[in-house]
Amino acid sequence: MSQQFTPNNPLPQEAKVPVEMAVFSLDVEAEIDRHLAKYPVKRSAILPLMFIVQRERGGYLDPPGVAYLADRLDVRITDIWEVATFYSMINTEPVGTYHIQVCRTLSCKILGAGKITEQCSTRLGIKPGETTPDGKFSLSEVECLGSCGTAPMLQIGFDFHENLTAEKLDKILDTCERGEYVFTVKG
């Protein structure tokens, strides 16, 4: 039977794995300070900081990034994981450079979201939830993104692509494949 860890029976010292901590540029540190200054309680900045860390650490919260957050916010590593695993936009595993997120909810669905996902799947050779072997594309089906009046739609990073047609989608994927896609919304 596995050992139960309680306050009276804490995690043994040797079980703690020392983790190297991420280091960020002065600009990023200043950006983080600006977020922390908004709140009377540091922990409130956890989500804005997670977005920054995941942007700076290749698209997801890696262990050094998590260690950094815990240190900067004065919380435990487990607190970081507790929050990270709740929110669908916080990645705890690597995602592709171009994360294609197709809205699957009702308004988009009745106007052809299924076909959009299928087209992405066929072209990229991956199913929703998967990443291409070269790490370039991830494909996800996501819930309503608030573009119901311009359905069907998808999001790449924070960019909205709306009123999609097969041709429009092909063009977007072309630019991504050529590495010429420019993210318009800064995160």
Partner: peptide, 9 residues
């Protein structure tokens, strides 16, 4: 101040 959520209905 603005604050960001992270994908939770």
């Amino acid at each position: 101040f603005t604050h960001t959520g992270a994908g939770a209905y």
